[in-house]
């Protein structure tokens, strides 16, 4: 069973400016990967989705790619 990346690294709040971390959880099309694949806890997955949406709005991440 996979461990939550954010819990392991003691990350309480997922920040939209942490683009390198957010990119780990995107597929080649720029979509957020499912919890089933990432193993992230439900709370952190919700924070992750919000952070990705904020980063997209600020032009740090693409809405779609490829």
């Amino acid at each position: 069973m996979k461990q939550c990346f954010f819990t392991q690294n003691n990350i309480k709040y997922v920040d939209y400016k942490d683009v390198d971390i957010l990119k780990k959880f995107l597929n080649p099309h720029g979509r957020v990967m499912a919890r089933k694949r990432t193993g992230v806890s439900s709370g952190h997955q919700r924070q992750l989705a919000l952070a990705v949406k904020r980063a997209r709005f600020m032009g740090m991440l693409p809405f779609v790619s490829r």
Binding site: D18, D20, I21, F57, G59
Partner: peptide, 16 residues
């Protein structure tokens, strides 16, 4: 060009 206001915490939240 654009701005984003977010509620956050006093501590540093940028993991890097």
């Amino acid at each position: 060009l654009r701005h984003l206001i977010t509620k956050t915490v006093r501590e540093n939240t940028v993991y890097s």
